[in-house]
């Protein structure tokens, strides 16, 4: 069972209160008219799917009902940090290797 720190509620809650919502920081194309099919396809369907640190969106469905972001290791499932939408992650695979 994951214990997830909700940055809005400012407390740890159990995994069952949350819903994972996939990769975070995917920017919608700025100019839809000028966006090619390849770019739309990439935005809609193609994902990083890393083995290691993953920045992803979670939804506090049975709590504050707000979205936030999580950096989580996809092998150990360890949650490395949580942060609000609009903020940037401070941890990725490069910084983790440097910290070791």
């Amino acid at each position: 069972m994951l214990h997830i720190y909700c940055p809005h509620c400012e407390e740890y809650r159990e995994e069952e209160e949350f819903r994972p919502k996939g990769e975070a920081h995917i920017a919608r194309p700025q100019n839809p008219e000028e966006t090619s099919d390849e770019e739309w396809g990439d935005y809609l369907f193609f994902r990083k799917n890393p083995r290691g640190a993953h920045h992803e969106q979670w939804y506090h469905a049975a709590g504050c009902r707000k979205f936030f972001n999580v950096t989580r290791d996809t092998v150990s499932y360890e949650i490395l940090e949580t942060y609000k939408v609009g903020e940037l992650p401070t941890i990725d695979d490069t910084s983790r290797r440097a910290a070791k």
Binding site: M1, E16, R19, P20, G22, E23, V75
Partner: peptide, 13 residues
């Protein structure tokens, strides 16, 4: 399980 993972195990819920 709803989240991405390579851990070959899942969650209790």
């Amino acid at each position: 399980d709803g989240y991405n993972g390579y851990g070959q195990r899942g969650s209790y819920p």
